[in-house]
Amino acid sequence: MQPRIFIGKVIKKNREIHKITQANLAERCSLSLVSISKFERNITEPSFATIIKLAKAFEMEVSEFVREIEEGLEMVHTPD
């Protein structure tokens, strides 16, 4: 089994807590709306530089945001 990180869940949860749209979050992070949508749907994962931007947009310490991501780890079975 390998850990799979569902960063999208953390991004969406924080976005909803702050009551901001994907478009507003994209603007705050200087990213495209498509990028935010793909992150939330776990199609792509943000770079560390983007994680820093997201944390700042949510007015969080980067370590706090990363901790939330770590807590969202889920073990999934991957075929050998």
Rank of each mutant, 00 (worst) to 15 (best):
S63N: 12
S63R: 14
V76Y: 06
F39V: 04
Q2L: 08
S37V: 04
F65S: 07
F65R: 02
K13G: 07
K38A: 01
E45R: 11
Q22D: 05
R4P: 06
S32D: 12
A49Q: 15
M60H: 00
S35Y: 08
I43R: 01
D80A: 09
E45K: 09
A49D: 15
S47R: 14
T21F: 08
E70C: 10
S32N: 09
I20K: 09
K56I: 10
H18C: 05
K38P: 02
T21I: 05
T44N: 07
A49L: 13
E70Q: 10
V10D: 02
F39C: 00
T44Q: 03
E45H: 10
F6E: 08
E40P: 07
S32I: 05
S35D: 04
A57L: 02
S35N: 12
G8K: 00
H18A: 13
H18P: 00
K38C: 02
F39N: 04
K53H: 11
Q2K: 13
E59L: 04
E68H: 03
S32C: 01
E74M: 13
E27Y: 12
I52C: 08
I7T: 07
I20W: 06
N24A: 07
E16Y: 11
G72R: 02
I17E: 14
H77W: 15
N14M: 12
L73H: 15
E68K: 07
N24Q: 15
K12I: 00
S47P: 11
I5G: 04
S37N: 11
V76T: 05
S47M: 09
S47C: 03
G72P: 00
I17S: 10
V76N: 08
L33Q: 06
S63V: 11
A26Y: 08
A26C: 11
R15G: 04
I11F: 03
P46L: 05
